[in-house]
Design a protein around this nucleic acid. Structure first.
Lengths: 111, 111
DNA sequence: CTCCAATATTCAAAGTTCTGCATATAGTGA
DNA sequence: TCACTATATGCAGAACTTTGAATATTGGAG
């Protein structure tokens, strides 16, 4: 295992070592969701959510998908998905199935 | 997934997000090793290694085993082992088998 | 008991990350 | 075009991590 390879893995783990980012990834591994949805579920200010999304996006772990005014993010990294499966438990079909609407989110997918 | 549970997982990932700690864990998942061995392999000063070992020990991820003057550390957390298997690849038998002696290490296991 | 070798602890400076806030951009509909 | 809504960016202070250096502890040999 070269130093450079170890460093890359450490950087990946660092992405997962932040509670808000970890929670975002746990949500996105089930369904693509828009920023306003994450804002509603996590109860954090929107610029703060966007900043964490940027970190994940620039690392290539998630990708964004514009739908009108909304931006839907989804998990795009199978290795991260595998790590989440081991750490947080598998992404079960019953959790995975339907998109859970959230009252406080007004996006097209929730309303 | 409660906030507290997410927080605990984030803390675990943080342990793995440091290159030296990650490398230590990658070595220890193969064999128990003494501090002087890690010092020789990693090429870092001894107090520095001991500090990272303390972080891992206090988190309950490794345990120490005194043999005379030497202290041998080993991985003691199956969940961390599982994460390492997914991230760094499996701990193969051929890597796992014999303890690799290191010239610059003078401990009883190396000489 | 004294010395030596292995490991542990403490502390402080330098660097990084986190978080909140103010503001910018971009897409949509009137 | 203008106003509005959703999202993104930039920046700065606070908090935390990292790293190195000096020093302490512990256990064994003589």
């Amino acid at each position: 295992m070269t130093d450079q390879r170890i460093e890359e893995h450490a950087v990946r783990f660092k992405l997962l070592s932040h509670p808000v980012r970890l929670q975002i990834l746990d949500i996105l591994r089930r369904n693509p969701e828009c920023v306003c949805h994450l804002e509603a579920v996590l109860g954090k200010p929107q610029p703060y959510i966007s900043q964490q999304l940027r970190v994940l996006r620039e690392a290539g772990v998630i990708v964004d998908n514009k739908e009108g005014l909304n931006v839907f993010y989804q998990l795009a990294d199978p290795e991260i998905a595998a790590l989440l499966n081991v750490a947080l438990g598998p992404n079960l079909p019953e959790r995975n199935g339907a998109h859970q609407s959230v009252l406080s989110c007004e996006c097209p997918h929730c309303s």
